[in-house]
C-alpha cells in the first residue's frame, strides 16, 4: 500500500464542504452545558482527516499556539477556490481549528478576505470561553489563512 498523498487527505475532508458553518452554529446553540460543547468540539476535530507527516514542517507551522498546529492549502485553478487542511496534536485546538476551517474552506481568496471571522466567533460564543493564549492561537490560524488568501488576490 502506498502512503496517502496530500490530495487523498483533501479528498477525505468534508468540513466546509458538506458540513457548513450553519450546521455548526445550529448544533452549538443547542448544547448548553460546557461538557457537551467541548465533546462536540472534540468530535469536530476528529472529523478532520489530518495531514501527511511530510506536511508537518516549519513552513506550515502556526506559531503562537500552545500546541502544535499546521495548515496547508491548495488553490483549485478551475474554480479559483482555496482548499485548506489543518491538524493539531491537541484535540480541542483541532476542534477549534475545524471550525475555522469550516468558515474558510472552499471559498475564493476574495471571499476569505471579506469574511468577518470575529462575528462568526461572536455568534458561536466561542472566544469568550477561551483563555487569552488559546484565543491568540485561534487568531494566529486566521492570520495565516488570510495571508494565504492575499497571495492569490
Amino acid at each position: 500500500m502506498t502512503e496517502p498523498t496530500r490530495a487523498d487527505f483533501f479528498a477525505k475532508n468534508t468540513l466546509g464542504i458538506t458540513t457548513t458553518l450553519t450546521d455548526i452554529q445550529d448544533t452549538i446553540s443547542f448544547l448548553d452545558d460546557w461538557e457537551e460543547r467541548y465533546s462536540y468540539i472534540i468530535d469536530l476535530g476528529r472529523q478532520l482527516p489530518g495531514l501527511p507527516e511530510a506536511d508537518k514542517v516549519e513552513e506550515n507551522y502556526i506559531h503562537g499556539c500552545q500546541s502544535q498546529v499546521w495548515i496547508v492549502h491548495q488553490l483549485d485553478p478551475e474554480t479559483g477556490r482555496l482548499f485548506l487542511l489543518v491538524d493539531s496534536d491537541a484535540m480541542i485546538v483541532k476542534g477549534l481549528a475545524a471550525i475555522v476551517l469550516v468558515a474558510y474552506n472552499g471559498k475564493t481568496p476574495r471571499e476569505i478576505l471579506d469574511l468577518d471571522i470575529e462575528a462568526v466567533f461572536e455568534e458561536l460564543d466561542l472566544i469568550r470561553h477561551l483563555s487569552p493564549t488559546r484565543g491568540n492561537g485561534l487568531r494566529s490560524m486566521v492570520r495565516r489563512i488570510r495571508s494565504l488568501a492575499e497571495q492569490y488576490c
Binding site: A90, M91, I92
Partner: peptide, 13 residues
C-alpha cells in the same frame, strides 16, 4: 490520547 493542553482547558472548566 489526551494532549496536556486539552487537560488544561477541561480542568479549568
Amino acid at each position: 490520547g489526551i494532549h496536556p493542553s486539552d487537560f488544561g482547558t477541561l480542568l479549568d472548566h
